[in-house]
Design a protein around this nucleic acid. Structure first.
Lengths: 159, 159
DNA sequence: CATTTTGTTTTGAGTAATTCAAAACAATTG
DNA sequence: CAATTGTTTTGAATTACTCAAAACAAAATG
């Protein structure tokens, strides 16, 4: 294995997400730019909410030698660095998303598990201040709406 | 309440939570009254938020033969029957609580993990309607506040 | 009160998602 | 380009939980 350039190769730059942008994002988060990191970020660019396992599946198509643990490691570093957000809805493996820094929430279908982003309800910071914070220094409020997506409403209404 | 005694024995009635009340709660949920169920409910009466494992620890002091799987089974039946609520904060095993039916929320310390109940902000049903439900039939909204509890604020402020 | 039915618990095994640790390796720094 | 620092691979372990069959107990029934 003698690849002088970054192992993804300068000439196999993806059409989808620009390598330079991805690279810049990683670098400016203070992280080293590596092939697995680029591959994970690229896979994440194509999915709004993905599990580590789904990303692993996508990544190994592009970079076959990548291990699942590497994907976990990449996601942990991205999450810590703040360029990826991790959500953990009850009953689901963790999901990762690129949309960060805007305090948005999620709506999850209890039947099929599909997840969508929802903006903060009622104008500004709804529920962001609990009735009584009990002395806590509150840093974040996480809201998950649970319900049936349109498709599942339709399917469960069938004879 | 002169209950005919059950397998736990009339003379080992707990001082803490009245056996008759616990029994009535289980029975009126449409479930059979068994010693493991009483023990779990009693353990839960003494803890506002407990993991299955913590309950198992408490239960086996009172009823040593009880298996962990039984505790999971009991909790699943209670949760389904609606007499216990299950919450699953990110990074923690599931927690169970007796307070049900009032749509309250939780505040969790990111440092020590302590959990407290918080009432619904802004009157009733706050945040229960997302900005855009995206066609979902929303059934529940779950809010978790994350922050540092008073004790952890104090401890992290030390030299 | 004995019996049957139904539901629960035990026992034992299995799984999914994630984490840990050491060695090999690759990206950036000097 | 060598040194340093950080990342990934490899392999194993762990946590929290679920599944299934057999044994058992509570409630319903005669």
């Amino acid at each position: 294995m003698s690849t002088p350039e970054l192992s993804y190769g300068a000439d196999e730059r993806p059409a989808v997400a620009d390598a330079g942008l991805l690279e810049g994002g990683i670098r400016s988060a203070g992280l080293k730019v590596t092939a697995p990191r680029l591959a994970v970020l690229r896979a994440l660019a194509e999915r709004s909410h993905a599990t580590a396992d789904a990303l692993f599946g996508a990544v190994r198509e592009e970079l076959p030698g990548t291990s699942l643990q590497a994907v976990y490691g990449v996601l942990a570093s991205f999450t810590t660095a703040g360029i990826v957000r991790k959500i953990e809805p009850a009953g689901s493996p963790a999901l990762f998303e690129r949309r960060v820094g805007d305090n948005h929430h999620h709506i999850v279908c209890t039947r099929c598990g599909v997840v969508h982003d929802v903006d903060c309800a009622v104008g500004h910071s709804p529920c962001l201040t609990p009735a009584d914070a009990l002395g806590f220094d509150v840093r974040a409020a996480e809201v998950i709406y649970w319900g049936l997506c349109a498709q599942c409403q339709f399917e469960t209404a069938l004879p």
